[in-house]
Amino acid sequence: MPGDAGRPAALMARDVSVRYGPVRAVREASLTVGAGQAVALIGETGSGKSSLAFAVARLLPRSARVTGRVEIAGTDVLAADWRRFRGERARLLGCVAQDAMAALNPVLPVGRQVGELFAVHAGMGRRQAAAAASAALASVRIDHPEAVARLYPHQLSGGMRQRVMVAMALALRPPLVVADEPTTALDVSTQAEILGLVAELRERVGSGLLWITHDIGVVAELADWAAVMYAGRIVETGPVEAIFDAPAHPYTEGLLLTRRDLRSGAPGSPLFQIPGAPPARPDEAPGCPFMPRCPRATAVCAAREPPLLPLAGRGEAGHQAACHHPAPPGAPPAPAPARARTAAP
């Protein structure tokens, strides 16, 4: 997979599974983020994308059981001693959460929350850490960083709070940044600002980026590589252009259609929706979890779950899909029966 030749991959996840009691939220997912590369992880709510992202950071609640192998910049994450890893984590990866208001301590000034990182990891004194925090805030284009540093999270706008999160995630220049839908809670123009900011800073710092989203629209602008998750599994992965131009999995096709409808559709026109809903317990049935919603389903789909395999006869290297009937390259993207259900205007 692409990336800087000399450096180890920012993230290498192999066969990662996450279970909460009997529920398997992520099943044998593998994912690589090359050094300095941006990868988008796409999926609906409940597809397991956030569980996977927090599993690689070892930031799931203790009720979650994680198996598999995860390396961040060459460091084995899951096998590492919890206490040792706790200290190293911030150097390895930064996290940007979905809801910055909930992810910041409500009773501490944001400057102190940023400064803590420098105090703990760079051994800075109080004043030094405060200065470093202001610099970090300035680097995410916050005006008057010294004044903002003294404010509490609830006194900031949503965009400002998310900037603070970005500043914390990148403060120690980690090789990997995990962003969990960081723009969903924001209005459109702020979304664009944060998106631009992350792209720019990431390049400057040289971090790899794992960007989790349900909005396939932002993927093209931001990512080099994409992975699509459905019902706890990665069902298609490949370079962004390949996925956009020649999606192989019917679910990916459906996701792209929703986006096209959004772009072209006049206000009030019916939006495309993939009919049906993801299964509640995908691991219980033997077949492909997407089968009930799939326009191309056949008998084999009910019998066996398709493995994630390289697509034969495609130009793009690394394009893989988990489907018994992948769309041939260049096929029309919209299978007619999938249009069956439309949302109310």
Partner: peptide
Amino acid sequence: LASNWVRTAVGKGLRDGYILRRHVLRN
């Protein structure tokens, strides 16, 4: 302890005792 901001603090590599004293008890 179940809040997102404690998750953030854990993610920042702070020690449990420190999180408890400086973040949680402060709340």
